[in-house]
Design a protein around this nucleic acid. Structure first.
Lengths: 170, 170
DNA sequence: CCATTGATGTCCGAAAACGGCGAGTCAGGC
DNA sequence: GCCTGACTCGCCGTTTTCGGACATCAATGG
């Protein structure tokens, strides 16, 4: 069940990790897809191309990829279950350039045993990059998975690590 | 899953069979509830009270209850599965004051065996009175069921029978 | 005359399967 | 001894699947 009677807007943006499709409604940014992963919900009838909010999103993402932005300032409106929203909200608190484990994330939302559930919720994060699910990795340091593909996850972590360490040459 | 990005309007109307709640979107009348049956979807946040269409609906319903209207002229936009839409559409062709059986209705949509399914679809008619599901009764003449309660069903059939026969005194 | 049965689409509840995990165990290799 | 990797098992929210129940009715068999 979708939520509101709002009009839905979308836009696309080229990035170092491929084309991104942005989706928003009147309340905020709602989804970001990697072009390659065929998202089941793609192409609703009645979507309207572009809106003011998406211009900000696009600009901030470009800054992020240029290494000039470490956190986003956008109204967000992801759709999900209460548990998922809790997980995604917690994602927003992981600092730039830092990684934590799925177990640690589970502990932070006070459900230390809901580890696999956290993994699943993470895998369904509708706002990758903006909500940095890529900063969550296995307890043993393995990357374990990413909607946009593991290479993309590695790219994002490399980028952040490089910038955070002030290493301008990579 | 709701359908459109349309704003949703509602209004209420008193009738001989209790308070009716009318719901519409930009495309047409969408639902009519009997006040007493606690409808699960009641009271969405963000609904807007009243709209032009609902004034027409209200007026035509009042005329209907006064015995001065035998069919409705309103844009309709009920939400349902293809099968349900087919059933509901067929409801609209049953003349005022006439009753048919569930089996007959099944035959009319070319699915003579989908009798119980027709019953179920009938029970989920979102636009009672306007789409006259009350004109469908058991093959043996029993009323068998009605969302607004069997007394209401009987009332509607009595009303139509009286008017159709020209019996102004009941 | 009554009870039984089969056909149909949808909803609802229960139950099972399934993950972007992780701690523990155990066998091998060095 | 110490590390590694393969394996097992428990954990938990979500999704999928499945089995009934329905605003029925005609046919059948006792």
């Amino acid at each position: 069940m979708t939520n509101g009677p709002d009009t839905i807007y979308y836009d696309e943006i080229d990035s170092p990790v491929g084309t991104l499709r942005l989706v928003a409604d009147g309340r905020g940014l709602r989804e970001i897809w990697f072009e390659r992963e065929r998202h089941p919900k793609q192409a609703y009838p009645g979507w309207v191309r572009a809106a003011a909010l998406l211009k900000f999103a696009r600009a901030q993402l470009e800054e992020y990829f240029a290494g000039e932005r470490q956190h986003f300032e956008l109204p967000l409106h992801p759709i999900g279950t209460p548990f998922q929203l809790e997980v995604w909200h917690e994602l927003g608190r992981i600092p730039y350039g830092v990684t934590i484990s799925y177990g640690e994330l589970a502990r932070r939302i006070d459900k230390p045993l809901a580890v696999r559930a956290v993994g699943a919720a993470n895998g369904r994060n509708p706002l990758p990059i903006v909500l940095p699910c890529h900063r969550v990795i296995g307890a043993n340091g393995s990357l374990t998975g990413f909607g946009g593909g593991l290479p993309t996850k590695r790219y994002l972590l490399d980028l952040e690590d490089r910038i955070a360490r002030g290493d301008l040459f990579g």
